[in-house]
């Protein structure tokens, strides 16, 4: 017998629904509408015949930005996953002592909880182009070079990737670590009795057991990296010239720096579409993992 409990459910859901409609659904509709207009700082809503989308296709920088985005997300994901796995295996499988392992787990999470405004200045200060920069002092000490390097100008993408990876490490490492913990101890014991080495245990037992977690984290982090531009914005702001301009950041720049709100909305829409596709994938992975 299925008795409906509407009267009880709706009061519970009302605040949630109100906030979600006002701040997700309405802005989403507005963004779609805006992307079809040439809205700028004079705030006139005027249909412009898909001109924004045409602009995206015509802009020679689009290719560069797509490439940047792919490189940025690809490198960051690969690094994050590998490092996450290494850390998770180290702190959960090899380090049996609970307090030591949780100590390191919290260390790894420090960059994640550091506010972006502080974190970015930390990097800028570290990589200061003058001979007073910390990294430059190290570099000049090691190589005996007399000329300080301008790291952010020379290797902007690498730096942005590194800075981002450090902040995303915590989440994946904790997730993997709890997944490894839930692997039954018997499996390890059986493998050891069979004479398997540590490497075989890692690759033969741990990795297959957490493969859905890996997929999940990979997709989840991809979504995050595609859409979160705050770290890049604060460290290089897309520069020098266009070298670290990624898709989400370019939407922000077009809208809030150049005041082309319509164009910015169109760029956002493209990304939202891509993200939607990834989300479908992710939900599939999640249901398989939890099955």
């Amino acid at each position: 017998m299925k008795k409906m409990q509407n009267g009880q459910a709706y009061p519970f859901l009302t605040p949630f629904m109100i906030l979600v409609s006002i701040f997700y659904i309405v802005p989403a509709i507005l963004t779609i509408a805006m992307s079809l207009t040439g809205l700028d700082s004079s705030f006139v809503w005027e249909w412009n015949n898909f001109n924004n989308y045409r602009k995206i296709l015509l802009d020679p920088n689009t290719g560069k930005i797509v490439l940047n985005t792919v490189v940025f997300v690809g490198c960051a994901i690969a690094l994050t996953i590998v490092l996450d796995l290494v850390i998770a295996v180290l702190v959960t499988y090899f380090i049996k002592n609970e307090s030591i392992s949780s100590f390191f787990k919290s260390l790894i999470m420090i960059p994640m909880i550091t506010p972006a405004v502080v974190y970015s200045v930390l990097w800028i200060w570290l990589l200061d182009a003058s001979e007073n920069g910390v990294v430059n002092q190290l570099y000049m000490g090691v190589t005996n070079s007399a000329i300080p390097l301008n790291w952010i100008a020379k290797y902007p993408m690498q730096i942005v990737v590194m800075a981002t990876v450090l902040t995303s490490l915590g989440f994946g490492a904790i997730n993997f670590s709890s997944a490894i913990k839930s692997i039954p101890e018997d499996q390890f014991k059986a493998a050891r009795i069979d004479g398997a080495g540590e490497w075989e245990i890692v690759s033969g037992i741990i990795l297959p057991n957490i493969r859905y977690h890996i997929q999940f984290i990979a997709l989840w982090e991809t979504l995050g990296l595609l859409t979160n531009y705050v770290t890049i914005m604060l460290i290089t702001d897309g520069g020098p010239s266009m070298q670290t301009e990624v898709w989400a950041l370019s939407a922000y720049h077009k809208a809030f720096t150049n005041q082309q709100y319509g164009y910015g909305a169109a760029i956002s829409m493209v990304l939202i579409f891509v993200v939607m596709v990834l989300m479908l994938l992710l939900n599939k992975v999640t249901s398989r993992r939890d099955a």
Binding site: I22, F23, W220, L223, G224, A248, Y252, S268, M279
Partner: peptide, 14 residues
């Protein structure tokens, strides 16, 4: 996991 930061322009209008 909706990219809510991309909706900021709309949110500002609201």
């Amino acid at each position: 996991m909706f990219p809510n930061l991309l909706l900021l322009i709309g949110v500002l209008y609201v």
